[in-house]
Write a protein that binds this DNA or RNA. Structure first.
Lengths: 203, 203
DNA sequence: TTGCGATTCATACGTTCGTATCACATAATA
DNA sequence: TATTATGTGATACGAACGTATGAATCGCAA
């Protein structure tokens, strides 16, 4: 069968959803093929192993995410403006393609080397932000300091809000599914990152 | 045997180390009892189940961590000063008792409800920081805004630096074990959080 | 229609998992 | 000393796991 929705694609889609939601070890091949309406052997046949499917599924979401970040980085304005644009882009994409952040954070929390696709995404995004920071330091919009550390401070906020948003519902009664309320969060984070990086600031 | 280092304690210690390093599902009871030099049945006997041991081990590290935060929150100075003190305390405790952050973030990344001990720690710490923020807004050191959102922006940075530090070694060549270099990071984060929250700021 | 590569399918294998069982050692109590 | 609670130990059990295997089926060129 090679219709518009072949098995290989369904496996990738389902794997992305389940791995993102529950993590690598908590999802079994049997879970995936059941939800994808595929045979038990399909994962081995199309990808070779569970690990390979995991990495392939991550790349599927990682690629557009990285491109989103890269294209937001090209927005007009000062270095600081462009960092803020990237933050907005990263947070607004939460419903779709937001799983890349979750997966990456999970891998970071574990020991051992980062799997290659995660390492690639991290390097790529950090270097984009660091580039914006250096540009901002030259145009005077961003304060002095190690560009790498500043980049991490900027990244930390959207990352944390993304994954903490679930906990917030329980712990603090913040509703995450209400778009208006989430927009308030996005505004806050973008503004907050500006404060974190800005060279000067009044009031 | 009920000497100075009974089986129950050894199990807690080893469980804390392994769960923190690799996550719940990636660690088996057999791994734990092997490293703790205990019998396979020891976990069931002393804790009832693997889950129960996991939660018990988390509480062991969560309690002193929460107390560290609470006591740093009592340091002198403005609200902003006290938030910075908490950030420093949280980051300096990384080598020991830093696992609470890692475990909590991992649970946040998963779906489903937070396990009770994690929920408790999160609520406790967020509410401490939020209290400091509200105090800072009253004494004029911290800018206006939703105290909960501001608290999350403050927390995000030490949290992220803690777990990203491993990835940074690989991705960016930052050495984490060098105390001097780590101190530079702590200084950066503390300063950065001040910038994030401060009401006014010049140069 | 035939033949063949590509895919799907049912099933089996060996391993590892969490937990349960029950005999045994140990230390305190009567 | 006899008894009892408490802990330790070796082993077993059923389930779930990732993967392998070989037959069945499909799509399509010859």
């Amino acid at each position: 069968m090679n219709s518009a929705d072949p098995v290989r694609t369904r496996l990738l889609t389902v794997a992305e959803e389940l791995f993102t939601r529950s993590g690598y070890e908590a999802v079994s091949i049997r879970d995936i093929v059941a939800k994808a309406k595929a045979n038990l052997g399909a994962v081995t046949y199309h990808f070779g192993s569970k690990q390979a499917l995991y990495h392939a599924a991550f790349e599927v979401i990682s690629e557009p995410f990285a491109e989103l970040i890269a294209s937001a980085a090209k927005s007009p304005g000062s270095g600081l403006d462009r960092v803020a644009a990237v933050v907005r882009a990263a947070l607004t994409t939460v419903p779709r393609r937001g799983g890349a952040v979750t997966c990456l954070l999970r891998e970071l929390a574990n020991d051992g080397p980062l799997p290659p696709p995660m390492l690639k995404l991290m390097q790529r995004n950090v270097s984009v932000i660091r580039g914006l920071i250096e540009a901002g330091q030259q145009d005077g919009s961003i304060r002095d300091g190690d560009p790498t550390l500043l980049a991490l401070s900027a990244i930390s906020q959207p990352f944390y809000f993304k994954i903490a948003s679930r906990g917030l519902e329980q712990a603090l009664g913040v509703k995450r599914d209400d778009p208006a309320q989430w927009m308030r969060v996005v505004d806050h984070v973008a503004h907050s990152v500006r404060r974190t990086l800005a060279r000067e600031r009044a009031s």
